[in-house]
Nucleic acid binder design. Structure first.
Lengths: 189, 189
DNA sequence: GTCTATAAGGGGATAGAC
DNA sequence: GTCTATCCCCTTATAGAC
């Protein structure tokens, strides 16, 4: 709360630059020097904000991962498996659409995958998958859910979809995911 | 053709080790030292087989990429857009199933993506997407095709699907992809 | 918050012996 | 085909001044 600065605090600008670079080069392919260069500062300034590179990655993935818990909780308040599935699907799509570029990094970067495995949110992720499959899923259902998971992220990161607004993309993903899962989509709001 | 050796020529063993490591750590996260260590040789021995690291990546992605062309050609021999779509879908699924781990590397590793962009096979890839969408696709169709593309790869790399045989996985992916695309799957053979 | 300077190590890559 | 030895650069990370 001092002078006006365009994109936020130094920490926020750093994380924003990191996300872009991670998406473009991968975490292993992004050096602290690259992050510093994009911000127009030196590496030491980066180290002033975060003690290690891993801490930067954790700070990047933490906020989106922490949003999984409320998605699962909201879904579990519904009574039928079908309603729970629709609720969690909508929540996950919201998250993916909102973090189009980051989702792919979280899902597919090997360095991030290692950090995610040690993250408390993995348990929530399993809950979410269970909510999507429903109880005692057969192979076809599990394939469908896995396909939706990867598909959402791929579409989100697709440059050809960059022109779509978040609302449009959400609608498209929702109806397509419902088809993949073999369920009738509720009529649109 | 000399003495018996278990996994093939030195070059083949190197590429096999490279694929595993690329899938596990990403290309940027895989050093030539790691490849050499896995083979029980030194870096210099690796450099004897390939002049640069990029050449290793190209040798890894070349064979699967070269299989795109016959897939597109076979599909284009069919007369109707629907038949072409089913043909290309089956061919792509074959490819993904056969290279479960490699597909994710080719599709999502930023280093590989850069090399793929300069590869002649990109044109074929566009042809394949066009065959899947059909002429003058609307947004919903393009979303469906993008979702199938990413979904196939995600399911292929999913450890939970590792227990499925190639044939089983192919069948599951085919019917699920057809649902996503909103087409009736032809009855199984 | 940012800088200069530097340490310590690993990266890709090369030369030349065996 | 494989080795030892080496080069140079970039990496993460630290220390301390401004």
């Amino acid at each position: 709360m001092q002078g006006i600065r365009h994109p936020g605090t130094a920490r926020e600008r750093l994380l924003s630059a990191a996300v872009e670079l991670f998406a473009e080069h991968g975490v292993s392919g992004t050096s602290l020097q690259m992050i510093a260069d994009r911000l127009g500062v030196t590496k030491a300034a980066v180290y002033h904000q975060f003690p290690t590179k891993d801490e930067i990655v954790l700070a990047v993935i933490g906020p989106p991962l922490s949003r999984l818990e409320p998605i699962a909780e909201a879904a579990e308040r519904h009574r039928t498996p079908a309603a729970r599935r629709m609720s969690v699907l909508s929540g996950v799509i919201n998250l993916v659409v909102e973090h189009r570029r980051l989702s792919a990094v979280v899902s597919y970067d090997p360095v991030v995958a290692r950090l995610v495995r040690q993250h408390p949110a993995v348990a929530t992720l399993e809950r979410i998958v269970a909510l999507l499959t429903g109880p005692d899923p057969d192979i076809a259902t599990r394939v469908g859910v896995a396909m939706v998971g990867g598909g959402l992220i791929s579409v989100g990161m697709d440059p050809a979809m960059a022109g779509l607004t978040d609302d449009e993309l959400h609608r498209q993903l929702f109806v397509t995911a419902c088809r993949t899962l073999g369920v009738r989509a509720p009529r649109a709001a």
